[in-house]
């Protein structure tokens, strides 16, 4: 990545992620939870269930249903955000739900609901990707059967250059933003959005970058879970 590097606003290399830290099990009352700090994003995800479905008519007799709520705190943005769910939040709730759904073995939990709550404490660009990573960790923390963890990361184009992990400023001034979520072990993409224009070559490059980013986030999630469950003297047995 050294051809004609243009300085990014944040000073990062084109294939560099923001600082990410994930912690599993931050909320005692939830069955599973995770806190992610993704650059300036601070996001808490909590998972409840599997539990009884309310209202009852939403129950599906041969699998679980997933409910997801993505919500931004009033203080998460520069100007106060009205606390009710906006059109954008409802859309992202749906996008997150559909991104994690393929990973969950829903047939194992018939007639139940799995509830996912995502609260944005502080927002920066790429909060949907950060949220998906937190949700994935929280789902694993809740002990829900999953085919794989879900890792999400954005790539895009800013200042004429294809870059990994588009932040807020690059999103606003840049040419394209492409968040993807995937199941890294299975190499399946579960979320794919593209805002802006990319040529075929740029697109291929961006997808490649985003996949690399996803793999990094996958490892961070794994570390966060190992930290909670297998710490102390067991680490040595687990290192592969």
């Amino acid at each position: 990545m050294s051809e004609n590097n243009i300085e990014r606003i944040s000073g990062r290399a084109p294939d560099e992620l923001r600082n990410v830290s994930i912690k599993a099990g931050v909320i005692k009352n939830a069955d599973g939870s995770a806190l992610i700090e993704f650059g300036k994003n601070k996001i808490i995800a909590a998972v409840f269930g599997p539990k009884e479905v309310h209202p009852k008519h939403m129950m599906v007799s041969n699998r679980a249903i997933i409910k997801c709520r993505y919500h931004m705190m009033p203080f998460s943005t520069d100007t106060r955000k009205r606390p009710n769910l906006s059109r954008r939040e409802i859309e992202i709730s749906k996008v997150i739900r559909e991104a994690v759904q393929p990973a969950i073995l829903m047939e194992n939990y018939p007639r139940t609901a799995i509830e996912i709550y995502v609260e944005i404490l502080q927002s920066d660009g790429g909060s949907r990707c950060a949220a998906i990573n937190a949700v994935s960790t929280a789902l694993a923390d809740a002990g829900i059967n999953m085919r794989d963890l879900i890792a999400a990361c954005a790539a895009g184009k800013a200042n004429g250059q294809v870059v990994l992990d588009v932040d807020d400023q690059e999103d606003k001034t840049g040419e394209a933003d492409m968040p993807i979520a995937m199941l890294p072990n299975m190499d399946l993409i579960t979320l794919f959005q593209l805002d802006g224009n990319l040529s075929k070559e740029e697109f291929d490059k961006a997808l490649e970058l985003a996949k690399i980013g996803c793999n990094k986030l996958y490892n961070l999630q794994k570390d966060a879970l190992s930290e909670k469950y297998f710490n102390e003297n067991n680490k040595k047995e687990d290192e592969e």
Binding site: A103, L105, A140, N145, M146, R147, D148, L149, L183, P184, N185, M186, Y218, Q221, K222, L225, S226, Y229, F230, N234, E237, D238
Partner: peptide, 24 residues
């Protein structure tokens, strides 16, 4: 024995899945 998280490959080859594993 080894410690695993969802998505980890436990083992490759012809084995019988008993509980909390899937065969892909």
């Amino acid at each position: 024995r080894k410690y695993v998280v969802p998505g980890d490959v436990v083992i490759e080859g012809d084995h019988n899945p008993i509980a909390n594993v899937i065969k892909e």
